Simulated scan of single mutants.
Amino acid sequence: MTRLNLLLLIIAAGCALATVTAQHTARKLFQALEAEQDHARQLDVEFGQLQLELSTWATPPRIEKIAREKLKMSTPEPARTIVAAGVAP
């Protein structure tokens, strides 16, 4: 009977240690998951900011201003403009 009690005590202690280890691992994984979700939210915010910046830099008035000032481009005169008629398929 004493051997049986000792065996059951060892099994119970092993199960308790396994439970503690499993809970610790679960907590560490949950912390890692939350950290990755926070990082994903930060990347979403940065992506939105970059899209806004891109739309600001690509506005037609800004492109026209750069073309006129830096590239010294101008609108062609109507007499020099040729309009090509499209051909229907």
Rank of each mutant, 00 (worst) to 15 (best):
M1T: 13
T2M: 03
T2G: 09
R3Y: 08
L4C: 06
N5W: 04
N5S: 04
L8F: 00
L9D: 08
L9Q: 02
I10G: 05
I10T: 12
A12T: 09
A13C: 09
A13L: 12
G14D: 04
C15S: 14
C15V: 13
C15W: 01
A16R: 02
T19E: 11
V20N: 05
V20I: 13
A22W: 05
A22C: 11
H24P: 00
T25N: 10
K28L: 02
K28I: 06
F30M: 09
F30E: 13
F30T: 11
A32V: 08
A32F: 08
E34P: 08
E34A: 07
E36P: 03
E36F: 03
Q37Y: 07
D38P: 00
D38I: 07
H39I: 05
H39V: 05
A40R: 11
A40H: 11
R41I: 09
R41W: 01
Q42S: 04
Q42L: 07
D44V: 01
D44L: 12
D44I: 06
D44Y: 03
V45M: 12
E46V: 00
F47N: 15
F47L: 15
G48M: 04
G48A: 10
Q49K: 15
Q49E: 14
L50Y: 10
L50W: 07
Q51K: 10
E53N: 11
E53T: 09
L54D: 09
S55Y: 08
A58W: 12
P61S: 03
R62D: 03
I63M: 14
I63L: 12
E64Y: 03
K65Q: 04
K65G: 02
A67R: 05
R68V: 04
E69Q: 15
L71C: 06
K72H: 14
K72N: 13
K72A: 13
K72M: 02
K72I: 04
K72T: 08
T75E: 14
T75Q: 15
P76Q: 11
E77K: 07
E77R: 06
E77W: 04
A79Y: 00
R80D: 12
R80N: 12
T81Q: 09
T81C: 05
V83Y: 07
A84L: 15
A84F: 13
G86L: 06
A88G: 00
A88P: 01
